[in-house]
C-alpha cells in the first residue's frame, strides 16, 4: 500500500501550494499516474479520499489521468505501445524494450477556491 504514502505526498504538495498561493479549498485536483508508474489508481484514489477530510482537499473532485505505456524497442528501433512491464514488442515479439512513456507520477493542476 505505498499509495497511502503517495497520497500523503500529494497532500503535502497541495498544502505547500495553498500556503504560497493563498487558497483554502481545492475544487478539483488532477493527477497523472502512467500505466508503467507502478501505481494502482484505485488504491491511490481510495487513499486520497481517506486523508482528505479536514484538509484543503476535503470535497475535492479527484481526476487521475493514466497516460498509456510506451517503450523503445531496441531491435525494431521504434517506439511501441506497452500495456505493462514484461510485455513483448507488438512488432517483433522481443523483450528488449526500454519504457519511454507512461512512467509519469505527478500533480498536474488544481482548481481552487480562495
Amino acid at each position: 500500500m505505498h499509495e497511502a504514502s503517495l497520497a500523503g505526498g500529494v497532500l503535502r504538495l497541495v498544502e505547500q501550494t495553498a500556503q504560497r498561493e493563498r487558497f483554502s479549498r481545492v475544487a478539483r485536483l488532477r493527477l497523472e499516474a502512467g500505466a508503467l508508474a507502478g501505481v494502482e489508481v484505485r488504491a491511490l484514489r481510495f487513499a486520497l479520499e481517506a486523508i482528505a477530510p479536514g484538509t484543503v482537499l476535503e470535497g475535492a473532485v479527484i481526476d487521475i489521468d493514466q497516460p498509456p505505456g510506451q517503450a523503445w524497442c531496441m531491435d525494431c528501433s521504434m517506439t511501441v505501445a506497452m500495456a505493462q512491464r514484461g510485455d513483448a514488442c507488438p512488432h517483433c515479439g522481443g523483450y528488449r524494450l526500454q519504457p519511454t512513456g507512461g512512467t509519469e507520477l505527478r500533480v498536474v493542476d488544481l482548481m481552487v477556491n480562495d
Partner: peptide, 25 residues
C-alpha cells in the same frame, strides 16, 4: 461554482503545478 460575485473575492482559479509526487523524496 458559487453562483455569486463578492467584491474583493475571486472565484475558482486554476493553478498549474506539474510536480512529481516523489519529487521531495
Amino acid at each position: 461554482a458559487a453562483r455569486v460575485s463578492v467584491p474583493g473575492m475571486s472565484q475558482t482559479r486554476a493553478i498549474r503545478l506539474e510536480t512529481d509526487i516523489l519529487g521531495e523524496n
